[in-house]
């Protein structure tokens, strides 16, 4: 058999063999395989896309969540601040009320003290007056114990009257 002259027998069998191979594979193998591969590729692509959208959604959700959290925080802070303010206000009011009461009480006390003081002073004044009268009595009785002295006195008083 020559190297470069094609042999009829081999051509014949090659046509048959290759034909059978092509026929069977083209009918029972390639369509199934290529379809399955492309279907799987599409499926994977779909899944990837879906994962991507989910990721994006998650991102959005996260952002939303974050925002909500932020808002909640702000609200909490506000509520806290309000409460603090209210407490302060109430404290202030209470203090003012207390002060007022205190002042009122003080005023009453002061008046009472004043009254007592006045009373005491009056008492003391009366006492002093009585004492003074006693003292004056004693002094006069002392002064006018003698005749001369009484005359002197009367003369003095007469002089004084003369002057007038």
């Amino acid at each position: 058999m020559n190297l470069i002259t094609p042999d009829f027998g081999l051509i014949f069998w090659m046509l048959i063999g290759f034909g059978i191979l092509f026929f069977i594979l083209a009918k029972f193998a390639w369509p199934i395989i290529t379809k399955a591969i492309s279907q799987r590729e599409e499926y994977i692509q779909e899944q990837l896309d879906a994962a991507d959208t989910v990721k994006k959604e998650m991102k959005n959700l996260k952002a939303e969540h974050h925002q909500l959290l932020q808002e909640a925080k702000e609200e909490r802070d506000k509520i806290l601040a309000d409460a603090r303010k209210m407490v302060e206000k109430m404290n202030e009011e209470a203090r003012i009320l207390r002060d007022k009461e205190h002042d009122a009480r003080m005023a009453e006390t002061k008046i009472a003290i004043q009254n007592e003081k006045m009373k005491a002073l009056t008492d003391i004044k009366n006492e002093i007056a009585l004492l003074s009268i006693d003292v004056a009595e004693k002094i006069l009785s002392e002064e006018l114990s003698t005749q001369t002295k009484q005359e002197e006195m009367i003369s003095k008083w007469v002089n004084e009257l003369n002057l007038n």
């Binding site: 042999d7 009829f8 027998g9 081999l10 069998w13």
Partner: peptide, 12 residues
């Protein structure tokens, strides 16, 4: 006409 199953045909 020779259409024998030769070595190459067999391998094919």
């Amino acid at each position: 006409t020779d259409i024998s199953i030769t070595k190459n045909v067999c391998a094919l």
